[in-house]
């Protein structure tokens, strides 16, 4: 097990002069038409943040705070109404340099596991042999090499998400966008998937934007947490996690910093939900968890 270099282990993010940040949002707003098309819904309002290379950022917030919208903007799948989105100094374009892992896996049901992974490699920059080799290597990485001829319908939820992860990693992207990737997986598998993700990340160091509504997931994975508020989605606070990596090597949950962050973030999340007029808990007098 390699020791993580000091300057990358969270905390101070090396502001390498001259290089543009990996991701930059500057005053970005986005409005969608509602389901009926009658009213416009402001999904995110005036969101600004920057992410330096090799940083793992968690976007944490209750539902309705535009987390998915931020990822789609960062991939260039949609354009903002106002403000600017830049990835390595240019407007983002979907492609092999940005990997996207979706909450609902989005595997092609009629294609084998192997073909699903190769689907991300179909750009002319990869030869046929290289596609095969990369798909095999990444299926091996997520432990699914012997399932390469299976169809997605034959796999469990956790396995499907590993295929989706292999697909996103196969191009070896500089940026990995993950939209609640472990939300539809059972708790035990989720725990192991986090460790798997941390190992891969430690090895490759892509920029990760990881959407989650789980406080624990955000703390255990991220260098930095962007706390988002709902309706309209907006950034509320940025928090550096400052827990030593690799975090699977010790019981990070017992660290004072973890406990402190967890109770702070849980409290803020609770406030955000209770003050959201669209929430079913709006205005209810729910006592905070008792102090121990």
């Amino acid at each position: 097990m390699s020791v993580v270099p000091e300057d990358l282990a969270g905390g101070e993010h090396g502001q390498r002069s001259g290089l543009p940040p990996a991701i930059r949002f500057d005053g970005v707003s986005k409005t969608f038409a509602s389901a009926g098309g009658r009213t416009a819904v402001l999904a995110i309002q005036d969101v600004s943040f920057t992410v330096e290379p090799a940083t793992f950022v968690a976007l944490l917030g209750p539902s309705g705070c535009g987390k998915t919208t931020i990822l789609r903007l960062a991939d260039g799948l949609i354009q903002g109404d106002t403000g600017q989105v830049e990835v390595f100094g240019a407007p983002p374009k979907p492609g092999p340099n940005i990997g996207f892992v979706f909450q609902t896996f989005r595997l092609i049901p009629w294609a084998s596991v192997q073909d699903n992974v190769e689907f991300a490699l179909k750009s002319p920059q990869f030869s046929q042999a290289e596609r095969r080799e990369r798909a095999n290597r990444h299926l091996e990485l997520v432990g699914l090499a012997e399932f390469r001829h299976a169809y997605p319908g034959e796999l469990s939820g956790g396995m499907k998400q590993r295929v989706a992860l292999a697909r996103a990693l196969a191009t070896e992207p500089d940026i990995l966008l993950m939209d609640e990737p472990f939300a539809s997986i059972d708790a035990q598998t989720r725990e192991l998937m986090r460790i798997e993700l941390m190992r891969i990340w430690t090895d490759r160091r892509p920029v990760v934007l990881f959407v989650t509504h789980s406080v624990d997931e955000a703390i255990i994975l991220a260098d930095r947490i962007l706390l988002l508020g709902p309706r309209p989605g907006r950034t509320v606070k940025t928090i550096e996690v400052e827990l030593e990596r690799p975090r699977w090597a010790y019981d990070a949950r017992a660290e004072p910093r973890y406990v402190e962050l967890r109770s702070y973030l849980s409290e803020r999340m609770r406030e955000l939900v209770l003050s959201d007029p669209s929430s079913e808990f709006y205005g209810r007098d729910l006592a905070p968890p008792p102090d121990r």
Binding site: L77, K93, P94, F102, R106
Partner: peptide, 25 residues
């Protein structure tokens, strides 16, 4: 539509999305 968006996110062209996602489905 979710599969179409997935195909867009890996950089597929419109023709490729039509041929490899829309038609088979």
């Amino acid at each position: 539509e979710e599969l179409v968006e997935m195909a867009r996110s890996v950089g597929s062209s419109r023709q490729r999305i039509f041929i490899s996602i829309v038609l088979p489905s």
